[in-house]
Design a protein around this nucleic acid. Sequence first.
DNA 1: TTATATTATGAATTAAGTGTCAGAATATAT
DNA 2: ATATATTCTGACACTTAATTCATAATATAA
Lengths: 207, 207
Amino acid sequence: MADQKLPRREREKLRQRQEILSVALDLFSQKGYHNVAMHEVAAQAEFAIGTLYKFFQNKEDLYKALVLEECDRFEEILQAALAQTEDEVEKLRHYVRAKGQWCRDNLPFVRLFLAESRGASFNIKAGLDDELRQRYYVFMERIALIFERGIKNRRFKKIAEPYFLAVALDSVVDASLLLWLDAPERHPYPEDPEAVLGIFFQGLLEA
Amino acid sequence: MADQKLPRREREKLRQRQEILSVALDLFSQKGYHNVAMHEVAAQAEFAIGTLYKFFQNKEDLYKALVLEECDRFEEILQAALAQTEDEVEKLRHYVRAKGQWCRDNLPFVRLFLAESRGASFNIKAGLDDELRQRYYVFMERIALIFERGIKNRRFKKIAEPYFLAVALDSVVDASLLLWLDAPERHPYPEDPEAVLGIFFQGLLEA
DNA sequence: TTATATTATGAATTAAGTGTCAGAATATAT
DNA sequence: ATATATTCTGACACTTAATTCATAATATAA
């Protein structure tokens, strides 16, 4: 971050912006986008409403900024995890572990995302949905590439299309994290990525 | 349905109720719950607003009725599919096929569900979310039982806990249907349940 | 046919929440 | 210290949409 290079005033502003986003994330994730009034965000962040409108054109704009900036960070972390090794199996392990870790570190956002992300409810015009879906597809292509290379290498059998394998793996990771989120006492956090990957690596059918 | 036993007036009422629910489903699935006004539902269904409030206490109540009744039908169909055979592998095939078929037959509801179901946005107090989650868990237990029996039978290797296998399978089915929904030209409808089940049945790793 | 009961109607009420803007507060420049 | 520019403030205007209820329409009974 080049924050330090900016004049004091600008840095101050950035901090305020972050503060607003952070408060908004908390409130949205607790009560849902539609049940949070701009007044509430303002009050909680200790600004006047008018000030929020200095930073964000409107409520939707605030929400978009929140989601997109959070997703940027998420993607960076996953990229970094994938870059750690060349080995296909290891890449998958890193991916699963990093995704889990990030979710653990960003619970409020995860909750918000689960609650609102698919939300045609107010995103239909916003186009945020499309942007996120697009990003998701692009990322899945990356994971698909790992499977593809693994298949070329003869490390993997081609039990399905690489892209479908990617989406399937990702959705099982989500499912395992969701179980943990919903009932941590019954489904402890899946520390070991093998719990998920085992399903893909080993076949279910007895020979 | 015992509709025929009811006096004419009552049957008429039931039909009206269905009509309202059907219109509401269409509108909600197209524009999202929050972007549909009761006025719109009334207009589309050719009733006065007041009439809607004869049938449903309020908007949320209407939505709940819609979702719960639709889910009832869904569950019935899946139950029926599972009851068709005793063979574990066949049961899984029937399940995957029936779920896909139902989704195909109920696209508007599927869209609505994807858009709103997780929605803490307005369900937090409604408790609908909890009810649906509960039902989901109960249903997953049923699928888990299939895996459990298969493991006991030595038809399946125990590559993971039965319950987790159930949730994983279900989430991969969802993922494959979602791909089709989002981009039917690129990801054709998965007619053959083996496309999904193959991932579970065969292992990915080369021996 | 007339009286009575039931049901449907939609204008009016109420509530909630977004976004504006004139003026207050604060910062910067001279 | 004063003038000027910038930023912050929050009361309020305005919109939107849920719900109510007095009245009209319709059905049923006598």
